[in-house]
Simulated assay, not measured.
Amino acid sequence: MRDSHQENDKRKQKDVEKYKVWTLAESNELQKLMVDAATHEWRDSNGLLSKTTIERKILPALNDCQRTYPQCRSRLKWFKQRYNNFPQLIRHSSGCG
């Protein structure tokens, strides 16, 4: 029984070690790169950035941050959630502040 608890603790510790928190500077740099990607029309026919585009053009610019594609994708989802909150906030604003 004790061995299984130790194994679970080791797995949790390894998962925590894999996670790297995004700093404000890294987030800002990723945002700038996303804007550049949109202005340079690096998007595919669906209007989305493909995995190869992100790996070849955006991640090398973030190379000093040592980020991977899944980490970048996760941060882009985070940006999207924050962006979607603003129209909802403005829509439900009564003007009183």
Score class of each variant (00 low, 15 high):
3 D>W: 06
4 S>F: 05
4 S>H: 05
4 S>D: 07
5 H>R: 06
6 Q>S: 08
7 E>Y: 12
7 E>F: 13
8 N>H: 06
10 K>P: 01
10 K>I: 04
11 R>A: 03
11 R>G: 01
13 Q>W: 03
14 K>A: 11
14 K>E: 09
14 K>P: 01
15 D>A: 14
15 D>N: 12
16 V>P: 00
16 V>I: 09
17 E>F: 04
18 K>E: 10
19 Y>W: 00
20 K>F: 03
20 K>G: 00
20 K>I: 04
20 K>T: 04
22 W>L: 02
23 T>I: 06
23 T>F: 02
24 L>V: 11
24 L>T: 11
24 L>Q: 10
24 L>R: 10
25 A>G: 14
26 E>P: 02
27 S>C: 11
29 E>N: 05
30 L>S: 04
30 L>E: 01
31 Q>R: 06
33 L>M: 11
34 M>F: 05
34 M>R: 02
35 V>N: 03
35 V>I: 12
35 V>K: 06
36 D>N: 10
37 A>Y: 01
37 A>H: 02
39 T>P: 05
39 T>D: 03
40 H>L: 14
40 H>R: 11
42 W>G: 03
43 R>E: 14
45 S>G: 01
45 S>D: 11
47 G>K: 02
48 L>P: 02
48 L>M: 07
49 L>W: 05
49 L>E: 06
49 L>C: 09
50 S>R: 12
50 S>L: 10
50 S>K: 12
51 K>I: 08
51 K>S: 12
51 K>Y: 07
52 T>W: 05
53 T>K: 08
53 T>E: 08
53 T>S: 08
53 T>M: 13
53 T>A: 11
54 I>T: 04
56 R>Y: 05
56 R>I: 03
57 K>C: 00
58 I>F: 01
58 I>Y: 00
59 L>G: 00
59 L>V: 03
59 L>C: 03
60 P>L: 13
61 A>R: 14
61 A>Q: 14
62 L>S: 07
62 L>Y: 07
63 N>Q: 14
63 N>V: 11
66 Q>E: 15
66 Q>G: 11
66 Q>P: 03
66 Q>Y: 09
67 R>H: 08
68 T>H: 09
69 Y>S: 02
70 P>N: 09
70 P>V: 07
70 P>A: 06
70 P>E: 06
71 Q>H: 05
71 Q>Y: 00
71 Q>L: 02
72 C>P: 02
72 C>M: 07
75 R>S: 00
76 L>T: 06
76 L>Q: 08
76 L>E: 06
77 K>D: 09
78 W>F: 15
78 W>E: 14
78 W>I: 07
79 F>A: 08
79 F>H: 13
80 K>I: 05
80 K>E: 13
80 K>Y: 13
81 Q>R: 15
81 Q>I: 13
81 Q>K: 15
82 R>E: 12
82 R>A: 09
83 Y>Q: 08
84 N>D: 10
86 F>H: 14
87 P>R: 06
87 P>F: 04
88 Q>I: 14
88 Q>Y: 13
88 Q>H: 11
88 Q>N: 10
89 L>W: 08
90 I>E: 08
91 R>T: 07
92 H>T: 10
92 H>D: 12
93 S>T: 07
93 S>Y: 10
93 S>E: 09
94 S>F: 03
95 G>A: 13
95 G>W: 14
96 C>I: 10
96 C>K: 10
97 G>W: 01
97 G>M: 04
97 G>R: 00
97 G>F: 00
